[in-house]
Nucleic acid binder design. Structure first.
Lengths: 332, 332
DNA sequence: GTGAAAGCGCTAACAT
DNA sequence: ATGTTAGCGCTTTCAC
C-alpha cells in the first residue's frame, strides 16, 4: 500500500509520454496516435487508474454531478422518482446525489449552498418549496411543484402533471358513484399545485350540479400516513360527515384506510375514497385504492434528460405538463 | 452577473489581506487578530462567499462527503436509515450522498468506483453484497449485512441486529399461539444474515418440540411486496399448508397480506404471520402486522458516528449487535 | 502527434 | 500576526 491513489503524472511516466497525452486519450479528444493511445490504455488498465474527479471538476469548474432534492424519501412517490433519475443519470455518465430535506425548508437551503460549493453541474428539485429563489448560474429543473418565478426565468425547466385534470377526474368518479357530499383534503404547504386540484374538483362538482362548500375542504400540514389518519378522524367526527373523500396524495388516503378499518367503517359502502399518485403501495393495500395516476417515472426521465441537455449548454426552458389517468380499484 | 463564483483570492484583496489569512479565519485555525478576522468575515458576508469545496477537497485529498449505499431506497427500512444517516452527518458538517443500487451488484461496484474518484471521506454500506471486497484506504462501515472479510479487516466497522434472536422470537410467538406447521421465508441473496434467523427459528422449534423440515423453508430472490405475494401463493398452494409463516422482512409479509386478502383467507384465524423490521407501514396495514422490531434508526446513528470517528483517524473496528424485540399486533 | 507549462481555488509549510 | 509560495491532479492553450 504505497500510493493510495496513482495520478495522471505517474501514468504518463509509466507509459513514456506526457500528462497532456494521457489526458487526451482518457477524454478521447485532441489527437494522438493509435499506438500511443493503446499503450496509455494498457497502463491505465494495469494500474487500475481512475482520474481524480475532484481535480477534473476543479479544472473545468463543474462536477459531473447533479443534485436531486426531494422532500420525503420515505414516500414511494419520491423514492421512485429519485431512483429513476439516478439510474438515467448514471447511464449518461453523471452521478446523482440525492438530498432528502425531510420537508424542511431550512435543509433545502442548506443543500443548495452545499451543492453549489460542490460545483454540481445541475439540480433537480422535486417538489421543492415554491417560494425558493431561482438558482443562479446552474441548470435547474423542477418537478411537480412549480416555483413562482419559473415563468420569467431563463434556464429553468418545469415538469409536472395536469393537476386540474387530476382533481376533476377524482371528483367525477366520486360523483358517478352517486356520492353527494364530497370532501377534499389538500396539502397546506403546496399552494399552487393544490389549488389546481381544487379547481378541477370544484368544476366537476359544478358540472354535475353537486353542492360544494368550504366546510368540505380540509388541509393537512404534512403528507404522510399519520396525517391522513388524523385528518380523517377529524372529518369523520365532524357534524356532517361526507360520503366520499378525495385525498390529494395516496399516502394520505392510505392513512385514512387505517382509520376506517379501526372504526369498522366499510369502504366503499359507507364512504368512497380516491387518492392521487398511484404509488405501488396503493395497489397492495386493503382495500386496494382507487386513485389518479401520475406518470412520475416519466417526470424523472424527462427531468434527467432536461438537466443533461442544459448542462451541455442547450436552452431547455420548456414546461412539460403530463396528463393523469383514473385507476379503478376497490375504494369507490 | 460578472463572476459567478468569487474566490478566496478576491476576498483577500477586498479585505486587504492575504489568501492565507482568509483561509485561517475560514477554518478557524492558525492565528490572526480579532480585527482582521472581523474584517474578513464582513467581506465574506457581504459577497456571500462560500469556499469552493472542490478545491478544498483536492488540496487535502479528501472530501467532506460520505457515500451511503443502499440496495432499495423504496423500502422504508432503507429510506429511514438513509434519512437518519443523512441528518446526523449534516449536523456534523458532512454531506451524505445516497446511492441506491436497486439491488444490482454491478451498480454497487460502479458506485464504489465513482465514490472513490470523488474522494469521499467514508462509505456506509447498508446491506451491501456480503461478498464485496473491502474498500482499501477509506473508512467504511457496514450495516445489517456483514461482509465476509469484516472480522479480519482493520478499519472496518459493522452494525447489525441479533438475527438469531429475531428468528427465535418470531418462531416462539407463533408456537405460543398454538401453531404447529410454521414456515419461514428467507432472502436467497443474503446468506449470512438469513442463516442466523433460520437458526433462531430452528432452535425455537426444537425447544418447544415442534417439527421443522426443509419443506417449510422458502426462499425469495428479492425483497419486495410482489415477491412476498408470489411466494405466499406458492406456499398456500402447496400440498401441506402451514398454519403460520415467518417472513424475513416486513415488506414480504405485507405482500402476503394482499394475497390472503384476495383469497379470502382470514388472518390470524386461518394462518398466523410475523414479519421482521417493524417499518412504519407495518403498523398501518390491515390487519396490522405482528413483527420483530429492529432499531434501524439506531443502526443509522451508530454508523454515522462511526464513520466520522474513523474519518478523524480513530480506529473504530467495533462490531455492534443490537437486540430485537417482538411487537404484538394483529396477525398472530 | 506530442510536450511544456499555466492555472483552477484552496491549504499548509515556511518566512518574516 | 500575516504574507509568500508550492503544489494537490487535472485540462487546455500554445509551441514545435
Amino acid at each position: 500500500m504505497k500510493k493510495e491513489n496513482i495520478s495522471i503524472k505517474e501514468i504518463a511516466r509509466l507509459a513514456g509520454t506526457s500528462v497532456a497525452t494521457v489526458s487526451r486519450v482518457i477524454n478521447q479528444n485532441g489527437r494522438f496516435s493509435e499506438e500511443t493511445g493503446q499503450r496509455v490504455r494498457e497502463v491505465i488498465e494495469a494500474y487500475n487508474y481512475r482520474p481524480n474527479e475532484l481535480a477534473r471538476s476543479l479544472r473545468v469548474d463543474k462536477a459531473q454531478v447533479v443534485g436531486v432534492i426531494v422532500p420525503d424519501i420515505t414516500n414511494e412517490f419520491f423514492s421512485y422518482i429519485a431512483r429513476k433519475i439516478e439510474t438515467d443519470l448514471l447511464e449518461k455518465g453523471y452521478m446523482a446525489v440525492i438530498c432528502d430535506t425531510n420537508e424542511s425548508m431550512e435543509r433545502e437551503k442548506q443543500y443548495i449552498e452545499t451543492l453549489k460549493a460542490m460545483r454540481v453541474g445541475g439540480i433537480i428539485y422535486v417538489s421543492g418549496d415554491q417560494k425558493i429563489e431561482p438558482i443562479r448560474g446552474i441548470p435547474a429543473v423542477y418537478i411537480d411543484r412549480k416555483p413562482e418565478f419559473v415563468n420569467g426565468d431563463r434556464g429553468s425547466c418545469f415538469i409536472g402533471g395536469d393537476n386540474y385534470q387530476g382533481g376533476y377526474l377524482a371528483a367525477q368518479r366520486l360523483i358517478r358513484a352517486g356520492r353527494k357530499r364530497i370532501a377534499i383534503v389538500l396539502h397546506a404547504r403546496t399552494i399552487a399545485t393544490q389549488e389546481k386540484r381544487l379547481n378541477g374538483y370544484r368544476q366537476a362538482l359544478y358540472d354535475y350540479g353537486i353542492p360544494g362548500g368550504e366546510e368540505l375542504i380540509y388541509q393537512v400540514e404534512n403528507v404522510d400516513m399519520d396525517h391522513g389518519f388524523r385528518i380523517t378522524k377529524e372529518i369523520w367526527e365532524s357534524p356532517e360527515r361526507p360520503d366520499a373523500i378525495f385525498y390529494s396524495s395516496d399516502i394520505l388516503a392510505i392513512g385514512a384506510l387505517q382509520y376506517f378499518h379501526e372504526r369498522g367503517v366499510k369502504i366503499p359502502r359507507d364512504v368512497s375514497i380516491v387518492g392521487i399518485d398511484d404509488i405501488p403501495l396503493s395497489a397492495r393495500v386493503t382495500p386496494a385504492l382507487t386513485t389518479v395516476r401520475q406518470d412520475y417515472l416519466k417526470y424523472g426521465s424527462l427531468a434527467s434528460n432536461a438537466v443533461v441537455k442544459m448542462m451541455k449548454g442547450d436552452q431547455e426552458k420548456r414546461t412539460y405538463i403530463l396528463s393523469m389517468e383514473l385507476i379503478e380499484r376497490e375504494t369507490v
